[in-house]
Simulated assay, not measured.
Amino acid sequence: MARRRTLRPEEQEIWAAVARTATPMHPGRQLFLKEVDTPRNAVPLHPEAPEPRGHTHPRLPLFHLGEKSRSATRLDLVPTPSEALSAAPLQMDAKTHGKMTRGKLTPEARIDLHGLTLSEAHPELIRFILNAQSDGARLVLVITGKGRRGEDIGPIPQRMGVLRHQVPQWLRMPPLGQAVLQVSEAHLKHGGSGAYYVYLRRR
Score class of each variant (00 low, 15 high):
residue 135 D to Y: 11
residue 136 G to D: 05
residue 137 A to R: 08
residue 137 A to H: 13
residue 137 A to F: 12
residue 138 R to M: 02
residue 138 R to V: 03
residue 138 R to N: 08
residue 139 L to A: 06
residue 139 L to W: 02
residue 140 V to N: 03
residue 140 V to G: 04
residue 140 V to L: 09
residue 142 V to C: 04
residue 143 I to H: 12
residue 145 G to S: 11
residue 145 G to N: 08
residue 146 K to S: 09
residue 147 G to N: 11
residue 147 G to S: 06
residue 147 G to Y: 10
residue 147 G to K: 04
residue 147 G to H: 06
residue 147 G to I: 04
residue 148 R to K: 12
residue 148 R to P: 02
residue 149 R to K: 13
residue 149 R to A: 12
residue 149 R to E: 06
residue 150 G to S: 08
residue 150 G to Q: 13
residue 151 E to N: 07
residue 151 E to I: 06
residue 152 D to A: 08
residue 153 I to C: 08
residue 154 G to L: 12
residue 154 G to M: 13
residue 155 P to G: 03
residue 156 I to H: 07
residue 156 I to R: 14
residue 157 P to I: 08
residue 157 P to T: 12
residue 158 Q to Y: 04
residue 158 Q to L: 15
residue 158 Q to T: 07
residue 160 M to T: 13
residue 160 M to I: 15
residue 161 G to E: 04
residue 162 V to E: 15
residue 162 V to L: 15
residue 162 V to I: 15
residue 162 V to M: 08
residue 162 V to W: 03
residue 163 L to V: 10
residue 163 L to E: 02
residue 163 L to W: 03
residue 163 L to M: 13
residue 163 L to R: 03
residue 164 R to Q: 10
residue 164 R to G: 04
residue 164 R to F: 04
residue 165 H to P: 00
residue 165 H to M: 01
residue 166 Q to D: 08
residue 166 Q to L: 11
residue 166 Q to H: 15
residue 167 V to E: 01
residue 167 V to N: 02
residue 168 P to V: 10
residue 168 P to D: 12
residue 168 P to C: 14
residue 169 Q to P: 00
residue 169 Q to V: 07
residue 169 Q to I: 09
residue 170 W to F: 03
residue 170 W to E: 02
residue 170 W to P: 01
residue 170 W to C: 01
residue 170 W to I: 02
residue 171 L to N: 04
residue 171 L to T: 00
residue 171 L to C: 07
residue 171 L to K: 05
residue 172 R to Y: 00
residue 172 R to K: 12
residue 172 R to S: 13
residue 172 R to V: 00
residue 172 R to L: 05
residue 173 M to K: 14
residue 173 M to D: 15
residue 174 P to T: 09
residue 174 P to R: 13
residue 175 P to Y: 10
residue 175 P to C: 11
residue 175 P to E: 06
residue 177 G to A: 14
residue 177 G to K: 00
residue 178 Q to D: 14
residue 178 Q to R: 15
residue 178 Q to N: 08
residue 178 Q to C: 01
residue 179 A to M: 12
residue 180 V to T: 15
residue 180 V to K: 01
residue 181 L to V: 02
residue 182 Q to M: 02
residue 182 Q to F: 01
residue 182 Q to N: 11
residue 182 Q to E: 14
residue 183 V to A: 00
residue 184 S to Q: 09
residue 184 S to G: 07
residue 186 A to L: 05
residue 186 A to V: 09
residue 187 H to T: 11
residue 187 H to F: 06
residue 187 H to K: 07
residue 188 L to A: 07
residue 188 L to V: 09
residue 190 H to W: 15
residue 190 H to N: 09
residue 191 G to R: 05
residue 191 G to F: 05
residue 192 G to I: 10
residue 193 S to R: 13
residue 194 G to H: 04
residue 195 A to M: 09
residue 195 A to T: 04
residue 195 A to I: 05
residue 195 A to F: 03
residue 199 Y to N: 00
residue 199 Y to K: 01
residue 199 Y to G: 00
residue 199 Y to M: 06
residue 199 Y to Q: 04
residue 200 L to N: 00
residue 200 L to P: 01
residue 200 L to Y: 02
residue 201 R to G: 03
residue 201 R to Q: 12
residue 202 R to G: 13
residue 202 R to V: 09
residue 202 R to K: 12
